[in-house]
Design a protein around this nucleic acid. Sequence first.
DNA 1: TGTACATCAGTGAACGCGCGTTCACTGATGTAC
DNA 2: TGTACATCAGTGAACGCGCGTTCACTGATGTAC
Lengths: 207, 207
Amino acid sequence: MATKRPKSLRGQGGRLKLDLIEAAMRFLDRAPASDLSLRMVASEAGVSPTSAYKHFANAGALMAEVVRECWRQLGAQMVEGAAQAQGKDALASLQQQMCAYARYAMERPSRYQLLFALEPMDFDAPIDLPGPVQPAYRSVCAAIAQAVDEGRGLPMPDVHFSALLTLSVAHGRIALAHTAPHRDANALPEIESFIITALERLFPHVK
Amino acid sequence: MATKRPKSLRGQGGRLKLDLIEAAMRFLDRAPASDLSLRMVASEAGVSPTSAYKHFANAGALMAEVVRECWRQLGAQMVEGAAQAQGKDALASLQQQMCAYARYAMERPSRYQLLFALEPMDFDAPIDLPGPVQPAYRSVCAAIAQAVDEGRGLPMPDVHFSALLTLSVAHGRIALAHTAPHRDANALPEIESFIITALERLFPHVK
DNA sequence: TGTACATCAGTGAACGCGCGTTCACTGATGTAC
DNA sequence: TGTACATCAGTGAACGCGCGTTCACTGATGTAC
């Protein structure tokens, strides 16, 4: 793995710290989230397990950083999705954000698992991260408010609940696809069209 | 734990098999699903780990049976929920089924985790169980078809997609509550009212 | 420019842990005579 | 009714595994003189 590593990286600003996180991402591309461990990450990076302790207090701190990175990626992908709807209406933006979310979940299943494992991560290091709702929440609310301005009706009494409903629909559909016994790798198009249709119906033109 | 156990249960029809499953359920009431192991279950049942191998081929087979039992419970609770809406309309039945689901998830979080762990269970013994969608699916479809007869409109083009939307909303809302960093034990009432309101809006009277 | 030294990112061996699983066993049960 | 025996559900000790973590170490780097 990787090229020869000099014995010391002094002055390189903790290059190994980033290497380990990248190694974890690579590992998650071919293994389930539950197989992720400090030892596996170190091995993937071509380094001894001990070396990780020079950069992270413990295994939990490493995992927390990996989780943080996954959140960052998911957030970026959703922003990118919204950008694809530029020039179109707010509903299109909402749809594209949720579809981007679906894409991340289906294309990077292990990273998605890591983010949304139903059981709370009890790593030693606290993950002071927004929950799954937070990163998407603001921009979802904004898109919904704009959709109202554009003459659409809300599915729930107010913007807050409508945003929660939007996220619930997308998250629920995706989670169900992930849990299904015969998980279908080709399910993504069906899920995207499901989300697009659902949101269209949830936010109808009322003019 | 438990009362004194005779050295042999011969002729008692595998009493320990049931004991072990019950012990697993008890264990899940105080520990996360990821802590569940053959050894823990045996210990909870007051029995040596080895004894489990007289009743299960391996740890996976035991876990599969536990998962099966959780499905059975969730299904029963949803049926019971639907029964509470007896005499009311189909929408009420749908709402009560989904609320029963929410109750199981919030009151028995570890059992819910076990059922809906996002990562596929790769136990040695295949779990030939309906996915999360299946157990609820038929009765949800039936309730929706009846709601249509009662003059309600569908949120999606057909019954199938409307059922999937219903399950996605409920499952999504519940899953988000489970993943939230500051999980609130008192969130259940809010979730139930969310589900009730959402379904009311999704299936409006069109007369 | 050359040399001595402090720094610190890496190493490999070792620890204790809980896991699943196997082994030879024990002893109560139910049955055949 | 009594006795000898086969059955088999339990036991405890032991195995190898991967885990997180600690330890004393090494050796390249950058710096002070």
